[in-house]
Amino acid sequence: MHTKQTLLRDLENMRIDPRGTLFVHSSYKAIGPVEGGPDTVLDALTEYMQDGLLALPAHTWSYINGSNPRFNVQDSATCVGILTELFRKRPGVLRSLHPTHSVCALGRDAADFIAGNELCDTPCGRQSSYGKLLDREATILFIGVDLCKNTFIHGVEEWNDIPNRLTDRIMPYVIELPDGSEISAPSRKHCGELWSYYFWKVNDLFIREGIMYTGHFGYADTRVTNAATTNELLSRMLKADPELFSTNEPLARVGD
């Protein structure tokens, strides 16, 4: 049975910077039995990052769309796991205003981190929280999930103008604020979720290049990456091959 203390030790063993910015993708089930359940997991992450910034995705892309364009900041549930849904409801946690790719943050500079997402007309614009992960050289932690869940790579593709990643159609999203007021937030969408299925192909390369390492959080296999080095490597690769993530073919190894 995992406890808050054992999970704190796992974070320390993974060399997570407690004063930095940590963005977490997660599968609660992969962690195994935890004393106190998912709240204990969030307690451990929050305590470990108490002198830094903890952020999780709060996406709603699975159901906020052209036929259901109204995003309620306070009530719209996340579609990316139980930890994200419980985290967004915690006292002190702030949620950004992007209608499909909002994030939640707690800790140092949280308000700045989430600010302005409603002004972005794409899911992961350079001025969004995903761009701020790059600016902060944030750590991205994958608990029990692989790189196919790495939303940051969508951002890298956007910033490098990779074709066929965004719809031409602009969706007429509306953001409903807690005070009852509304904001118009027209935005394009990702062209399906197919491309992210191919993000796996850089897993081994990331490890060989030293920009990702692995560990454990509870029973979950984990991956730890850095936003800045991820962007640097992938931007070079995408400039050389804009179709890098357009197929499921594995990368060719040098010398093969």
Rank of each mutant, 00 (worst) to 15 (best):
Q74G: 10
Q74N: 14
Q74A: 15
A77D: 14
A77Y: 04
T78I: 00
T78L: 01
T78D: 07
C79F: 00
V80S: 02
V80F: 00
G81E: 05
G81P: 12
G81C: 05
I82H: 00
L83Y: 09
L83A: 03
T84C: 15
T84V: 12
E85N: 15
L86P: 05
F87T: 00
F87D: 00
R88D: 02
K89F: 12
K89A: 15
R90T: 07
R90W: 03
R90V: 04
P91V: 04
P91D: 06
G92R: 11
G92F: 03
G92P: 06
V93L: 01
L94K: 13
R95W: 12
S96D: 09
S96R: 03
L97K: 06
L97S: 05
L97N: 11
H98G: 10
H98R: 08
P99I: 03
P99T: 07
T100A: 12
S102K: 03
S102Q: 03
S102E: 04
S102A: 13
V103Q: 06
C104L: 02
A105E: 09
L106V: 10
L106D: 04
G107F: 14
R108A: 14
R108P: 02
R108Q: 14
R108L: 13
D109I: 06
A111F: 06
A111N: 10
A111W: 06
D112L: 14
D112T: 12
D112S: 14
F113I: 00
I114G: 00
I114C: 08
A115F: 13
N117P: 15
N117T: 10
E118M: 05
L119C: 08
C120Y: 00
C120L: 04
D121I: 09
D121A: 11
D121W: 09
T122R: 12
T122G: 05
P123L: 13
C124T: 15
G125K: 00
G125P: 01
G125C: 12
R126S: 10
R126H: 12
S128G: 13
S129R: 01
S129E: 01
Y130Q: 08
Y130I: 11
Y130P: 02
K132Y: 07
K132F: 13
